[in-house]
Design a protein around this nucleic acid. Sequence first.
RNA 1: GGUCCCAUCGUCUAGUGGCCUAGGACGCUGGCCUCUCACGCCGGAAACACGGGUUCGAGUCCCGUUGGGAUCACCA
Length: 470
Amino acid sequence: MTDKIRVRFAPSPTGHLHIGGARTALFNWLFARRSNGTFILRIEDTDTTRSTDEYIEAIIEGMKWLGLDWDEGPFRQTDRFDIYRSYADKLVKEGRAYYCYCSPEELETRRKESMAQGRPLKYNGKCRDLKEPVPGIQPVVRFRMPVEGQTVVDDLIKGRVSFENEQLDDLIILRSDNTPTYNLTVVVDDVDMKITHVIRGDDHLNNTPKQIQLYNAFGYPVPKFAHLPMILGSDKARLSKRHGATSVMAYYELGYLPEALVNYLVRLGWSYGDQEVFTRDELVEYFSFENVGKAAAVFNPEKLLWLNSQYIINSSPERLAGLVMPFLEKGGIIEKGQGMDMRWLSRAVGTLRERSKTLLELANSLRYFIAEEIEFIEKAKDKFLNEKSRDLLAALKEALASVPEFSHDELEKVFKSVVEKHGVKLKDLAQPVRVAMTGGTESPGIFDVLEVLGKEKTIGRLERAIKEIV
RNA sequence: GGUCCCAUCGUCUAGUGGCCUAGGACGCUGGCCUCUCACGCCGGAAACACGGGUUCGAGUCCCGUUGGGAUCACCA
């Protein structure tokens, strides 16, 4: 029996959970769930100057919203400094790492020189074979890379990738303040946490041979790697704020459903034949690295929007009614803490479901259902509330007074009879009524609008519209 | 610049040597449905980057070119 699969998502808390990170987390989660493995959340906060607790919270918030639950953690690397130091000390004792006394300025100068001369930007090995410490300087610890041979990364997505060891730099594993750097912590933790598959963005592919050398130095087996292609913006540059919303929670604010984002993100780089819309269970069942593409993908907000509309259409009005409440409050459509008849709201939502691409849109459309007083769009008022429609509206108002039941079907009968009596088309009545009810010219079917509004509000709005004409 | 990765419609992609007259989806677009707007349905335009090989046969395999991306920190 093979060992249980263990994967991890290891963000650094120097910003919110963004689209790219979320996708990495998602693929890890999918793979773990698919293979009955363990999903670990590890916070890589060794850059203490840029990491904050607020961002840790923000990342956790984003993961929870997306429904990416983890089995272990969150672990924080800052809680584990002693472990990293002991590993580093071990390497120094074995001669696989050494103290380096070169100053950052010195290194910077040499880098610039190398750049100018077109040579590879690599540490020159000045302190590699130093016998005596240099007094008065706090050294860093560098890992001694092999200078010959190749290191091969057997990647689940990219295939076999080979690097010349002479290209590998003697990387710093301990800073002069004795804190560990990324390449040390990531290897030590992956070893310590028994990670079997490292799934991350392919911007890490170039780090991988160095890390493999570290595994070798520690005498630990190398995990399997899967390097996901990057997500790009519309200009094919790495996705950034310039391209619009990049933080996951920004999509919450915009009125997206988490399952829509998840579905979109997973289809960015992964496919399952021609299928576009997946349930979470299907995703878990179908996921495989074999179907992950190698090429970077451009983030396409339009398709995400379409997916969101699909998920909204397929959500129950009851669920949507609950989800839209915060948006109603934020939009000032209802007062915070104001009571709401959720059954009624669900009916209103039901009429709007297939014409709202986001919860934000849905909330805004709900405005005319909920508000006591509607506001007219001038153009709509001018076009439909006029001499021509006044008598029709008045006739409808009168006919409505005696309607047995304020339902779609009964209302349709009333409309038909009014229209017939006046010798006009349905739309000649429907549009003025629509403006009277909603203030504008776009809405759900007019019988549905009236049914949801109810008799009292309908009559009231009819009266007001008639007054507007005079 | 060195190293590494990548390359099918505008975008996400199917394609694992003959099933490809290159399929689906978003977007765009023509029409239908219709009380408006949507939803839905039917149709259309739209791609194998280029050049060499290999093969009876190449979008699919190999090489090169071009183009894009990543990375080269006492960041992660």
